[in-house]
């Protein structure tokens, strides 16, 4: 019984190993700095600060946490 359970568990776990549809050697374009969501963090965090100090909306953009001290 234990062996059957182990086999079932292994089958379940192997289902989690998804075959990537973009292989590592196909990611040259994605690795190009022009494809970065934040090519220069110092610049994008400043621009975000400019908006947050003047707009009611805030957050939700997936950047670093922490206070902005902009109040």
């Amino acid at each position: 019984m234990k062996k059957i359970l182990m086999v079932q568990l292994l089958v379940l776990l192997s289902a989690c190993a998804v075959e990537p549809w973009v292989q590592p050697y196909e990611r040259a374009n994605l690795a190009d700095p022009i494809m970065s969501f934040s090519r220069d963090p110092i610049s994008s965090s400043y621009r975000k600060h400019v908006y947050e100090a003047r707009e009611g909306a805030r957050g939700g953009e997936g950047s670093q946490g922490g206070g902005c001290g902009c109040n």
Binding site: D32, I34, M35, S36, F37, G56, A57, G60
Partner: peptide, 27 residues
């Protein structure tokens, strides 16, 4: 407040990229 965003980057056939971001917010 709650905010959700989606960001997309697409690499063009020549070396250039298009970026798009959309965010919704409510408090």
């Amino acid at each position: 407040s709650r905010a959700a965003s989606i960001k997309m980057n697409y690499f063009l056939p020549y070396r250039a990229a298009i970026h798009y971001k959309q965010r919704v917010f409510a408090d």
